[in-house]
Design a protein around this nucleic acid. Sequence first.
DNA 1: ACCTGAACACCGTTCAAGT
DNA 2: ACCTGAACACCGTTCAAGT
Lengths: 218, 218
Amino acid sequence: MPLRRAEIVEAALALADERGLDAVSMRTVAERVGVTPMALYPHVGGKAALLDAMLDWMLGQLNADPGGPGGGPPPGTSWQQLMRELAHAARAVVIAHPWAATLVFSRPAVSEGSVRTVDLLYSALLDAGVAERDVPRVERLLSTVVIGFAASEALGRFTSADPDVRALRGMLKDGPLPGFARLGDVLSCPVDFEAEFDADLDDLEVLVEAIAGRGNAG
Amino acid sequence: MPLRRAEIVEAALALADERGLDAVSMRTVAERVGVTPMALYPHVGGKAALLDAMLDWMLGQLNADPGGPGGGPPPGTSWQQLMRELAHAARAVVIAHPWAATLVFSRPAVSEGSVRTVDLLYSALLDAGVAERDVPRVERLLSTVVIGFAASEALGRFTSADPDVRALRGMLKDGPLPGFARLGDVLSCPVDFEAEFDADLDDLEVLVEAIAGRGNAG
DNA sequence: ACCTGAACACCGTTCAAGT
DNA sequence: ACCTGAACACCGTTCAAGT
């Protein structure tokens, strides 16, 4: 049954990777499948549902790599390792498929793949000693940082970190701003976002430990 | 000169607030201004530039409220207060204008309003004792959390926190997942996102203090 | 200088019709 | 069951023309 459906979603994914999300239309996808636009509707339900399916496939990729084909992590994995592997996998997927960054904030994680990812994070946080009542919130916090970082990088928000545009930004008509002025030296270096992502993950690890330490008190 | 331009951007903002971002087209905006679609082009430069202008206006709203009309914070403000006020202002703006969440990841913060906000955060982090070389990274981390949280709330990612869809998510064909199973009780409560946002800000404060403590060593 | 009107190359989706 | 074709109500943008 979902044979034809898979073929359609695949065509849409290929189109998005090759020519961007804007190039994905019912008409271009249909042409790629070799069919009339209207023939897609019984299979995928419309443009919005097709985008959902594309995002679901993308989120499913997260669990494809770490720990081999079974999906689960190898038994001896620490919560720190697991968190970092998931974070790096998520960033890698968004960098490989930038169009996904546009979609990822707009739909809940209900695909099987993303549910499994959330479950792994839940288990990691419990292992770390985070109190049960804090786990869902901290999971949302961590995934928001990872997704937000990757989206900022892929979509252009972080291009403001270019030394050039930052130099511009510090200079307003009424003179430079105090914070920019004090950071002049630091702001003139280019940013290595891979390293910054790792530093953020270090900090998040520290934060999770602090939350776990505060623990079942309070 | 930018008299007509301001009128056009205002019309686009009103349209987005009333009927969503999808309702903003060159044609609908032109109709609202009382002019032909093509008359907009010399003033705003095209659809993409119009969206940029809308986002710039939105980011400018961030500095409108805190600390009165001058824009700057009152002298005695602690870095903690400043961080929280900016964060709450940002979330409020995104909730009042959900369409902005779609745009905010895709463009660097180059408008005057957002540059001033970044500068305030730089100063707050320096006051907190964060080492100069860490300030830009930590600023990006904090703003990513705030923007990511607000976008997730406004755009629908956090609707997965509904108890109903979460119950569904824990139950896959091959039985419930371990993390979801252990958190069953906690996951069945509805989520108060206002409170969660405050708890996240508490944690970020702890994190900034930890980074500041580590300080000018390393 | 500023605006209009017609046109071009697109959209998503409905609906009646084919096989 | 599955697909087609014509049609509807839209898009952003170019270009020549008006005043």
